[in-house]
Design a protein around this nucleic acid. Structure first.
Lengths: 206, 206
DNA sequence: TCCTCTACTAGACCAACGATCCGGTTCTCG
DNA sequence: CGAGAACCGGATCGTTGGTCTAGTAGAGGA
């Protein structure tokens, strides 16, 4: 009810800003996953209508892109001096990269879109700088293979974790058809597998 | 018009089967991409109603999973003898894997779901077998890092290719902010970058 | 020849989605 | 104090995945 008497008694709600939208989108994604992020639900959580969101944002994809870049923003750049082993710095960067994505499992689904936000780009820039400082005249291959590896491992881990109950059971039932896979591929520690594989990659870069 | 005279003159249309559905879904995906695949459009192309599809398939996700496994089915298993270099066999498998996915760029978007179809599993099984035959007592890390690498590189390449015009331009504008990235990350040959990175990985597996 | 069961099909329909239109209010700055 | 920019929400549009209802075609048995 809005009458002369009730009006102005409630203080104005805080302005809606892009930052608030992105923060709430992250919270919603963390709590309910990417499928449940709709403009209506997001607006509801912000105490507004869905139309209002479109004043700050052009499409829903904008929200997703901003959310992704916010995740990359969580990656802290390792600030070791140049004297430190470059492999250690790359390990730290890639580990932080992976950890940020795993902290928000929904991000694995969104890895198939251009990651051109400032946070993503500055991390990539840092990777190139580190490789160049390490002596790579042409760091392109190294940078790509490292990024590819991290992205792939995050997707793989999230996918398996989400279908965990079903997956393990299904594969175990068919262990007869895929003996080698069933014997070695089912149980392992994701963290150490990631680190070891990263070790392969780093070792191969002469 | 349906009269005694017109009836029965047209021969019955071919039965709808799962195979026909999957084949048509692949064609539709190849031609128009994953966003345009709707049950209605798929049904229309098959000359039937959308309801009919649900007799053969439980959800749209079923169609996507079947389409993905069909892509994996295109990967030919290299049949070199055990005498051949195991790295060459792995290279052949991974190259074929990548090529199949790149042949159907929409598949990059669907890599975030459990790949448990028979074709995907048999390729993975083959990878494990090859690694075991090569002497890996614990092939888990090797298998995962190879799969991760291939998945990541396909996603990366497809993403960049699809946003090519925009991406290159956008990054080139901001070359000042990301000098190392702009200098080395923009132009390169995807095939050789893939092969070189795979070389790193294989070289690192002592 | 009839009957029944399975396989299959279509149209209408449902709730929900992304996005837009319209009509309005509030804030800011000159 | 006035104008324009910023902001807001209800109704609405077209489309989606999926279901309900109401069937038809054809094989096999009695």
């Amino acid at each position: 009810m809005d009458t002369v008497w009730s009006r102005r008694r409630t203080e104005p709600k805080p302005r809606l800003t892009l930052d608030r939208i992105v923060a709430e989108a992250l919270a919603l994604l963390d709590e309910e996953g990417v499928a449940r992020l709709t403009m209506r639900r997001l607006a509801e959580r912000l105490g507004t209508g869905s139309t209002t969101l479109y004043w700050h944002v052009k499409t829903k994809d904008d929200v997703l892109d901003l959310a992704m870049d916010a995740v990359f923003g969580e990656v802290r750049l390792p600030d070791g001096g140049a004297g430190e082993d470059w492999r250690a710095r790359v390990r730290a960067l890639m580990g932080g990269w992976r950890a940020a994505l795993l902290r928000h499992p929904w991000s694995a689904t969104l890895l198939d879109r251009p990651l051109l936000g400032p946070n993503a780009l500055s991390r990539t820039e840092f990777l190139y700088e580190t490789l160049i400082a390490a002596g790579f005249a042409a760091p392109t291959t190294a940078a790509y293979s490292l990024s590819n590896y991290v992205m792939g491992s995050v997707i793989m881990e999230v996918t398996w974790a989400q279908s965990d109950a079903g997956t393990g059971g299904y594969l175990r039932e068919r262990a007869g058809d895929y003996p080698a896979l069933a014997a070695h591929g089912l149980e392992h520690d994701w963290d150490t597998t990631f680190e070891e594989g990263l070790g392969y990659l780093l070792a191969g870069m002469s």
